[in-house]
């Protein structure tokens, strides 16, 4: 029996970060919250993460920077980018780093769940509503 799939959430907004972690846990994933890309990269979670869900706009390293950093340190690790911004230039930069997906806030919980299932498969013991 393998342990549940491990998703790391990176967002500088503590409220949203906590809500997402809770959502993912409710889906059956194991999830942790990180307030910044630097925190995540320095944490022990980096090695065991099965997927990263990160905001783009953050102090310090952005979600795009994180994606590029992970491409070197954890090749193959799927990264899902999130943003509330709509500027064309920003979105272009985001897709250019080839994330697994780019989600627009606010997004549907089902959308995130589907996206994760496609990326790493359904969570063990996950219960669908």
């Amino acid at each position: 029996m393998s342990s549940p799939l491990f998703v790391c959430v990176v967002d500088d907004d503590p409220s949203l970060c906590a809500a997402l972690v809770n959502l993912l846990r409710s889906c059956g994933y194991r999830a942790t919250a990180h307030g910044s890309a630097e925190d995540f990269l320095a944490s022990a979670d980096l090695a065991g993460a099965d997927c990263v869900v990160t905001d783009i706009q953050m102090p310090g390293l952005s979600g795009i920077d994180l994606r590029l950093a992970l491409a070197g340190r954890r090749p193959g690790l799927p990264v899902i980018l999130m943003t509330a911004r709509t500027e064309r230039a920003l979105l272009d930069r985001a897709t250019a780093v080839r994330p697994f997906r780019l989600l627009h806030k606010p997004f549907d919980a089902e959308e995130l769940a589907t996206c994760l299932a496609e990326a790493i498969g359904p969570a063990e013991g996950a219960v669908r509503p």
Binding site: A18, N22, S26, M82, A84, P106, D108, A109, P129
Partner: peptide, 16 residues
């Protein structure tokens, strides 16, 4: 959008 996204996520999690 930030609180809205949080609300949506929290609501979905509630249902689950």
């Amino acid at each position: 959008n930030q609180p809205l996204a949080a609300i949506a996520a929290s609501g979905a999690a509630c249902l689950r």
